[in-house]
Amino acid sequence: MRKPNHFYYPIGKNRMQPVRELKMNHEQEMWMIGIMVAVTAVKFILMVYCRRFKNEIVRAYAQDHLFDVVTNSVGLQLQFLQFDFTGGLINWSYNIQSSYSKRIGPYLIALYTISTWARTVIENVWSLIGRTAPPEFLAKLTYLIWNHHEEIQHIDTVRAYTLGSHYFAEVDIVLPEDMPLNQAHNIGETLQEKLEQLPEVERAFVHIDFEFTHRPEHKTKV
């Protein structure tokens, strides 16, 4: 307000005065605290409820509710420090204006926010960029493929990579060259259905070949 700028604020900055001097009386403070406590309690109940589900989207809601519970609780504690309740449950002998809580509280909330959502971003980035599945899961797929049908002569390729919260699987198997088309199709289709029954697999693709000495048909795009 002490530095006017008529280009950005043609009528001056006096309208910032009510914002800068916003204060509440004791009754308004109690209403504010009651609302914050109620919202935090509801968020906590929703967090517990959403954690009961295995769906990734619902569990993301649980994480969001947990974040709100933590930040609201910290903000509520800082607000308690600011008040002097003579007849209430808390009676602080000093004012928050002269304590370090008001200074470090927002920074603590900001650091918690940054760290929490940074971890979330990293987790989601790994799930979107097509990162390979762990070796144990690839070994599980290989075992299922090899024991799927006695006519499978060779497993050429087994891939599984992230695409969202689940995996896409790509499989190349070798069947006898003289096998009838309908039989080869049935083997490939049933194998696809078996792989897609795994809870980790979103979609499976099965490619059938009669030999495995050729170069890969699909090259990686640069």
Rank of each mutant, 00 (worst) to 15 (best):
G164D: 03
T157H: 14
Q153D: 13
Q77V: 11
M30C: 10
Q197W: 00
Y94S: 13
A41Y: 01
P180E: 10
V19S: 10
S115Y: 08
S165K: 09
W92P: 04
H214S: 15
R52F: 01
N25L: 02
S98D: 14
I129H: 02
Y143W: 00
F210N: 15
D172A: 14
I208L: 14
Y143G: 00
I45V: 12
I145P: 03
Q192N: 13
I90S: 05
A38D: 01
P216Y: 03
T120P: 00
K102Q: 10
H6S: 15
K219W: 07
D68V: 02
M24F: 14
N55L: 01
V174C: 08
C50S: 12
Q197G: 06
Q197F: 00
N182M: 13
L76Y: 07
Y49Q: 08
F83W: 09
T40P: 00
L191R: 02
T162Q: 15
L108W: 01
I122G: 00
K219V: 06
I122C: 05
N147D: 07
D156E: 15
L195H: 05
R103T: 12
R215Y: 12
S99R: 05
R103K: 11
R215M: 11
K140C: 04
R159P: 06
I35G: 06
Y161K: 09
S115V: 13
L141N: 03
A133F: 03
A169V: 15
